[in-house]
Amino acid sequence: MDDIIASSGGRHGPPGGQIADQLRWFDITETDRRQAEALAVTADELAEQIIEDFYAHLLSFDDARRHFRSDEQIARVKKGQLKYFRELVTAALDEDYVRNRRQIGQIHERSGVTPTLYVGAYAYYLHRLGHRVMDRMQDDPGRALALLLSLIKIAHFDMAQALETYVEAREATIEQREREMSELPTPVLQLRDGLLLIPVVGTLDSYRARSLTVKLLEGIRDHRARAVVLDITGVAAVDSAVANHLIQTMTAARLMGASSVLTGLSAEVAQALVKIGVTGEALRTAGDLQHGIEMAERMLEI
């Protein structure tokens, strides 16, 4: 939790084009920026005390305390936070700023700071600051409120940057898992001399189709196969793109001197593919696996 809510430079984040849109979405105007900036001096004066209070609050939680190894570490993080909140009132809200905020979000996500912890810390800070600002500006509470509302808008914009990074990081993880699953090994089984069976499972995207083709061609070469049964019972979402991949794979097999039979196509899906326009001649199919194997065996006899 070293760098939590501490700022640092980075090279990540979205292109700048949409920042103007985002600011409009949060309804952040020039007035808001000026008003937030008017809080700079007050925020500076108060920040240290608020952050002290915040850490007293934070460290009263066992879970949070586990993240801190030493007093120096706490001191360093406090310094980072001071900078972070000072930037909140004076930030340019430009591309560099968004990049920087996103990188902080990444650091948080990686080190296990949950959105609850992050948003809670923010709420704590805004709440304390709000009270002190209202106290100080007792003679003009209307203005104090206006300034604080502007700051709250900017704070939400700021939080959104970090939370987006959280979501992106999770999505990257999911994509990685999907990729790993799509890389499930495709077994090449030799049924008898010259006859291979390849069960294909999962989704058949172009990446997976390429590796299937490679496996098939290697199998044909290694086993000196002359017939191959491709079983796609376990393939989700068979459509013209999948059919295209299969046609190319089977054509490649033919160029290697092996004929192939496709099995495992359900009757409904087969009908749908024909109606869409996939022609039967490109794909030699058999009703079920047993027929497919019989068909392949006949090919061996020719």
Partner: peptide, 21 residues
């Protein structure tokens, strides 16, 4: 019916894959 469901699923597949591609 089941064959109709397959047609619908296939159509969705084609449209969705066009978006991805």
């Amino acid at each position: 019916s089941r064959p109709e469901q397959a047609l619908i699923a296939t159509a969705i597949s084609e449209l969705a894959r066009n978006i991805v591609s």
